[in-house]
Amino acid sequence: MSNWSLCPLLLLLAVHLVCGSVDLPGSLDPSLLENVDVDQLRSNYLPPGLQNTTVTLDDFKKLLQSKCQKANDHLPKGSVNASALSQSVQDAAVTLGECLSGLANMTEIQAEIAEASPKGDLDVVFEKYCLRMPQAKTCLKNFNEALLPCLTPDEKAHNAVMQRIGDKLLEFICYKNGDQIALFIAEQGPECLQGSRDGIAKCLNSSFAGYLPKDLSPEWNLPQLVLGPKECVDLYAFETCTVELLEKCATITPSNIVESMFRYVRRESSCQPHIDRAKRQQRQALPLTGGSSASLHLTWTSASLLMATLLARLA
């Protein structure tokens, strides 16, 4: 079973929301999953060979239940109700969405940004919402507690890191009451991301083939939520690829802010030694390739991204 990292998931989801390829509602309700446009997600995120997959939302629910069951296989048979655990995760995801949307309504934020931008008052808008950051962290903590019973021992060992990364992402967004995000918008950051969407998609798809099953069937196992050496290198590869794309935008500020976000998150993990080792191996391999540039490839699967986006629509 392939592993996936929550860290690039969160980072790319942030990019995805800014680019606006999936519309988020202003408020959420328990029937939210039924309104997800799975066809849109397939066409946006799966490689061409897998875009005709017939996996449904019910299949994903079954995958979640299966994951809850397998995570508890070490316990006495019959001692764990995987169906109930799976339902608890789904309910918690809806609660998380309601909690976060109560703190920050996307439709209202967009309207406030549009009104504040011409006046140079974006910092006022973000300060208002950043004051709610402690409540947002509580929302995430409550969801995480519901998720824990469905995590494997390895995933639980990585969970504290994942929690810190989620908290640090919020802190980065609200650094100095949102100054960086206000600057990002003022310096055409959203437009830069929008114009780079195709390139970012190529970064994502650069090495999907080795990490996706040949057929996305209901029997496919959900990947693990861990941040190991391989995932660290993949995150750095995605960072490098994305930053290089954004550097081609009209101003360098969006690229600098995105790069700072990646680095800010990396400091909360133990990734740097693994990244440094990969860089050394790359340099050592250069003479064997005739001096050609060897590149690190992103290995986060598009199936993981698909599942992430579904969970994002819940949350």
Rank of each mutant, 00 (worst) to 15 (best):
D198I: 09
S304Q: 09
E239V: 04
Q284A: 11
F238M: 03
K214E: 11
E219P: 04
A182F: 04
E127N: 14
T299I: 08
L310I: 03
L225A: 03
P134G: 02
L246R: 05
T53G: 01
Q110F: 08
E98S: 05
T54H: 15
S292P: 05
V226T: 08
S5E: 04
P30G: 02
G20V: 02
Y45N: 01
Q163G: 11
P287L: 14
G166W: 01
Q284D: 15
M133G: 05
L193M: 05
R280G: 10
C232P: 00
S292I: 05
K119Y: 10
A278N: 02
K156F: 06
T251N: 15
Y264P: 04
Q224P: 03
Q65V: 02
H274S: 14
P213M: 03
T107H: 13
V55Q: 15
A186L: 06
G189A: 08
C232E: 00
S304H: 08
I200T: 02
L305Q: 10
L96D: 01
L122Y: 00
N142K: 05
S21Y: 13
D154P: 05
D29A: 13
R267E: 12
F143I: 00
S21N: 15
T289E: 15
A14C: 06
E244W: 09
K70H: 13
C139R: 00
P218N: 02
L193P: 06
V55C: 14
N256P: 10
N52M: 11
F238G: 01
P229D: 09
L122A: 01
L10Q: 04
I113Y: 09
E239N: 12
N205V: 00
G49K: 13
T152W: 03
K248G: 12
T138H: 06
L46G: 00
F208W: 10
P218A: 04
C192N: 10
H74V: 11
V80N: 11
Q282K: 08
Y264H: 12
S31L: 14
R267F: 08
K156W: 07
A303N: 01
E171D: 14
L222I: 01
C7T: 08
S260V: 03
D58K: 12
D23M: 09
E115V: 06
S196F: 07
S43D: 14
F126K: 06
L311W: 05
N72E: 08
P223D: 00
F262L: 12
V233C: 06
G20P: 07
L12V: 03
Q180W: 12
T299K: 06
L131D: 04
A157S: 12
D91P: 01
V18S: 12
L24M: 11
H297L: 12
A116P: 03
G291P: 07
N3M: 09
S217R: 05
